[in-house]
Computed example of a mutant assay.
Amino acid sequence: MTSPATTTVYESVVTQVGEQVEAFLAHGLLIFFADGSPAELHDISVLHTASTAVDGPRPGDTVHVGDTSLEVLAVGDVVGDNLLNLGHLDLKADGRSQAKLPGDVCVRKGDLPLLAVGDTFRITRSAGEEGSP
Rank of each mutant, 00 (worst) to 15 (best):
123 I>Q: 02
77 D>I: 00
109 K>I: 13
59 P>C: 11
71 E>S: 04
58 R>E: 11
18 G>Q: 03
48 H>D: 04
64 H>P: 01
86 L>A: 11
75 V>Q: 09
126 S>E: 15
80 G>I: 01
81 D>H: 06
78 V>L: 02
98 Q>Y: 10
53 A>Q: 10
126 S>K: 15
98 Q>D: 08
82 N>A: 09
22 E>Y: 07
96 R>G: 00
8 T>N: 07
51 S>D: 11
98 Q>W: 09
127 A>H: 07
114 L>S: 03
5 A>C: 13
94 D>M: 07
117 V>P: 05
24 F>Q: 12
119 D>K: 04
48 H>R: 13
102 P>R: 06
87 G>C: 06
64 H>V: 12
14 V>S: 05
1 M>G: 02
3 S>T: 15
38 P>Q: 11
41 L>D: 12
60 G>I: 15
109 K>G: 08
59 P>T: 14
92 K>D: 02
117 V>T: 13
58 R>Y: 13
29 L>W: 09
18 G>L: 01
15 T>R: 11
67 D>W: 01
15 T>F: 12
67 D>I: 04
28 G>A: 14
8 T>W: 07
4 P>C: 09
90 D>F: 08
126 S>M: 14
106 C>P: 00
30 L>C: 02
103 G>R: 02
43 D>P: 00
15 T>Y: 12
24 F>S: 11
80 G>F: 00
48 H>I: 10
100 K>G: 01
36 G>Y: 11
29 L>A: 13
93 A>K: 10
79 V>Y: 06
21 V>L: 01
132 S>W: 06
124 T>R: 03
29 L>D: 05
78 V>R: 01
41 L>W: 11
76 G>Y: 06
67 D>E: 12
109 K>R: 15
47 L>V: 13
52 T>K: 15
35 D>T: 12
59 P>A: 13
15 T>I: 08
1 M>Q: 05
11 E>K: 11
27 H>K: 13
50 A>E: 15
81 D>F: 04
60 G>M: 10
40 E>A: 12
83 L>K: 08
108 R>V: 10
125 R>V: 09
58 R>S: 11
78 V>W: 00
91 L>A: 02
101 L>M: 13
1 M>D: 00
39 A>E: 15
38 P>I: 03
69 S>N: 03
61 D>K: 10
106 C>W: 01
